[in-house]
């Protein structure tokens, strides 16, 4: 059978999906054991036990100086920043994107401006944000919102423009005006796409979050990683990277489920 036609069964697909994780995990453990056998104090490739112990300490033992549980304080701080930034970006993208995609005069006025703004590298603007907004939360949230917002605006506008003209004309023949069509035609049709845009934006959003935290912060997942880098604490850095990955995958999964539950018409295959 040709490779393109050989489809794995459910069980073998699961086994195949697990394989790369196992390979990387095994290679790491072997390399770590090698190094630790030569030098038990080696910091570069800590054993799973060392990482587990470090992670456990951060998760359940209160910090001696501040009295907080560091992992949870970091996670809360980072997620609040992340979701505030992405939430602001999504809200602006929805309103501005619909206006741009649906109303020709708004597109004529703001289309080129948004296109230009969306190519400004957000990290290059970070110093400006720190100077203008201070080193607090505002600048970090603003960086995330500015980083992912313009692309989301253009994506939403594009999707709105792709709504078949037939539907827009039909809605008008049934008595719709600009506002009621936005409410009953454009908004519902673009919501599933906004969720896709948010899922795609979360990747860059984490990048901007960690960059902002690395530069100026007192707590946060990115801050912690860059703080302990000074002590070569790989036993903290690696579990934190895994933890961030788990959070990102979990968020993505939740958004996918939300879209399938709220907009079944947009997911015909998954519908019961």
């Amino acid at each position: 059978m040709r490779l393109v036609n050989a489809r794995p069964s459910k069980g073998s697909a699961l086994a195949l999906a697990t394989l790369p994780f196992l390979v990387v995990g095994t290679l790491y453990v072997m390399a770590s054991m090698d190094r630790l056998a030569v030098n038990p104090d080696d910091k570069l490739l800590p054993s799973l036990g060392q990482m587990g112990a470090a992670f456990h300490t951060l998760a359940v033992v209160p910090d001696r100086r501040s009295g907080t549980l560091i992992l949870w304080a970091d996670t809360t701080a980072s997620l609040v920043r992340l979701f505030s930034g992405v939430g602001i970006a999504a809200t602006v993208a929805l309103t501005l994107g619909i206006a741009l995609g649906f109303i020709p005069r708004v597109k004529a006025t703001l289309g080129a401006f948004v296109a230009v703004v969306s190519v400004v590298p957000p990290l290059a603007v970070l110093p400006v944000l720190f100077i203008a907004l201070g080193l607090g939360e505002t600048a970090k949230i603003a960086l995330i919102a500015l980083g992912v917002g313009p692309v989301m605006i253009r994506d939403v506008a594009q999707r709105v423009a792709e709504i078949p003209a037939e539907l827009v004309v039909k809605a008008q023949t049934l008595g719709g005006n600009t506002w009621t069509m936005i409410l009953r035609l454009v908004l519902p049709q673009v919501m599933p796409r906004l969720i896709v845009a948010v899922r795609l934006a979360l990747g860059p959003a984490w990048l901007f979050l960690i960059a902002a935290e690395a530069i100026a912060s007192t707590e946060g997942l990115g801050y912690r990683i860059f703080l302990v880098r000074r002590y070569l604490s790989m036993d903290v850095i690696l579990p934190y990277v895994v933890w961030i990955t788990v959070l990102a995958v979990g968020t993505d999964w939740l958004l996918a489920r939300l879209s399938a539950a709220a907009f079944p018409w947009a997911h015909p295959r998954e519908a019961p």
Partner: peptide, 30 residues
């Protein structure tokens, strides 16, 4: 387009995000 003239196209004639009944109730809504 106004409510004077109704249209049925070959494709894209109904709203995919509304159920069959809601497609009709939408007329009263609008």
């Amino acid at each position: 387009p106004t409510t004077d003239r109704g249209i049925v196209y070959q494709r894209y004639s109904v709203f995919p995000h509304l159920t069959v009944r809601d497609n009709l109730v939408l007329v009263a809504d609008l």
